[in-house]
Design a protein around this nucleic acid. Structure first.
Lengths: 348, 348
DNA sequence: CTGAAAGCGCTTACAG
DNA sequence: CTGAAAGCGCTTACAG
């Protein structure tokens, strides 16, 4: 059975008040306590194997040192990496993290938010699914500190740490054009999430800037869940257009996994027949036979800034951090340049 | 500011005691409360947007409905998948999960355990790193419910849910032999963790059973952290033995990532020159040009049983669950069979 | 059907 | 340098 030694037990054994024990163990009154008494208290605490009851402390101090993190799905490598960084970072500030997965479901999301709020988290880091505006607004009105991660609503004034998706997409597309690609497709999600809109917008803008007239059937949208077969269909369609696309921008790592697996089964070669760029980092991108060029999000920075801005906000509710970070294009084999005659460029 | 509406606020507004409010909102005394009073209390609670303070409830009930999960690294796909399943499963029982990563570091592990214990988790699910016996024993002696996950100490009687690693490894090796492979290497971790010993033992036993004399330089051990270069060296060595190995068993998904990336740069073909099997499921195994045969752990079952046995143990400390689950070998292209003349077998 | 009261294990302003 | 005491927001045995 869990006996749970309390301050009272120590106080009794030491013949002092619980207040004094509390002061000593928390080092709250550094030099204003008799050294010997303090020493004695510490020894007894050690002997009894005392561990503070954080629940009791939290109730009294109204501070749990807990942060709630809600991602789309913790088993997605993107979320998992971010979660890991946030875990490390929050630990530096003595915070513990509770993690939940919303599965892009607004009901689940709301339920998770409520669970975490009931548990008196000091703040939240949220990747909201589509249609969560009201939940975000309610949170704001309740005065609960939070920061949006990866996604945000441009019309709601909140803390957020996100990617500059427009430019990330623009530069990736530009890289394909610079490599001699003329017909560039994109597979992305059918969603009203702002960051996904931005990815499409950057892609289309880059085409326009280079006087490539965007063809509607170059842009394939798939559902954000249940992706495999629709992605294969999308890829089939992109490759059966006359003339077929010679490059494709993949809007997420999940789209990339399914696309790359499928490409392996097709009689086409990357990068000769098709150049490929993916959003997000993932180990599978390097395991593909032609290591895939990708848009690298600065995850470390995102995680660190998310924690920092959240803690700023906990300390000063009027603080506001709204950042669109720059992505880095990691160029690998999958976007090998073509010569003017359409052959793969080979410097040797 | 967070005003936090309390039971007292509702009680005052309704002109009743906090006890009654508590009974109503918790449905503790179903039919023994005046319907109208109950209704009134519910309405007022709604109007005031009351949310229970779980911290206060936990202090009183000595139950937090929180489970602590410690894995090696949450950003590893294996841990992330398991974490996701555990999250889902614990939610069914109204539990919330706190996750921590030990990085195979026993100090970090102990610190995480203590943090979680101080937070009064109702139980723990642990993948302990090497040398954690004392921490496990201490936990046991404190009477804190826990279940070991993926790993366990055969000499300590605890709840655990693990894989039958010996047979998993044995069967994988047998499959390679059945496919005509004669010289089978293995890359695994240098570690005293029991489950890793079992993987080696199964591999060696399968060779023996088939009268293949095990050559010491077929087994390469790499450090459990800082793996990339040592794995490449190990692979180089396996391939430069005279005669080189014609198959390799990769002891974890991290070993597989690095091995497969490296194989892509070498002038050898899978499965013709080298058959490959990996432990654990991971999307990158399917993205490799020759989809990799792997030892699939029943993650869903592992996660479900972990939660179930933990909850059993919370309710009845004398309950004990010790399971070594059966793995499933998912056979893909990377272990294509050889004919008796050593060519790749092709049914067409 | 309802309420007064104790108490979970802490912290901390206050008094001495 | 130390302690008595209030109180955080709940639950629940008990009494009526």
């Amino acid at each position: 059975m869990r006996k749970s030694v309390s301050l009272k037990d120590i106080a009794q054994k030491a013949g002092v008040s619980t207040a004094l024990v509390s002061y000593v163990l928390n080092n709250t009154r550094e030099n204003r306590i008799n050294k010997e008494t303090a020493q004695k208290i510490r020894i007894i605490a050690g002997e009894l194997n005392y561990h503070i009851n954080q629940v009791a402390r939290s109730l009294k101090t109204n501070k749990t040192y807990t942060i709630g993190l809600i991602v789309s799905n913790i088993s997605n490598p993107f979320s998992a990496s971010l979660a890991r960084i946030i875990e490390n970072e929050s630990e530096k500030y003595k915070y513990t993290t509770i993690i939940g997965s919303s599965d892009e479901d607004v009901q689940k999301f709301e339920k998770l938010v409520n669970t975490m709020v009931n548990r008196q988290v000091d703040g939240l880091i949220l990747s909201p699914p589509s249609q969560s505006e009201n939940i975000i607004l309610k949170l704001q009105q309740q005065g609960i500190p939070f920061v949006l991660l990866d996604r945000y609503y441009p019309d709601i004034k909140t803390n957020y740490i996100a990617l500059d998706n427009y430019n990330a997409s623009f530069e990736a597309t530009q890289h394909l054009i610079d490599g001699g690609r003329k017909r560039i497709g994109m597979i992305s999600y059918r969603s009203d999430l702002f960051h996904l809109q931005e990815r499409k917008r950057g892609y289309v803008a880059a085409l326009k800037k280079n006087s490539i007239s965007f063809s509607k059937n170059w842009l394939k949208l798939v559902d954000i869940i249940n992706k495999k077969s629709t992605i294969e269909t999308a890829m089939d369609e992109l490759l059966s257009i006359e003339p077929a696309v010679d490059a494709v921008l993949l809007g997420s790592n999940q789209i990339a996994v399914n696309s790359l697996k499928y490409i392996n089964t097709l009689p086409i070669k990357v990068p000769k027949d098709l150049a490929v760029i993916s959003f997000d980092q993932a180990e599978m991108l390097d395991v593909f036979y032609s290591p895939v060029t990708y848009i690298k999000q600065p995850l470390e920075e995102i995680g660190q800034l998310a924690i920092k801005s959240l803690i700023d906000c906990i300390h000063d509710p009027s603080s506001l951090t709204a950042l669109n970070l720059k992505a880095e294009l990691i160029i690998q084999q999958s976007t090998g340049a073509l010569t003017t005659t359409g052959k793969l460029f080979d410097p040797h």
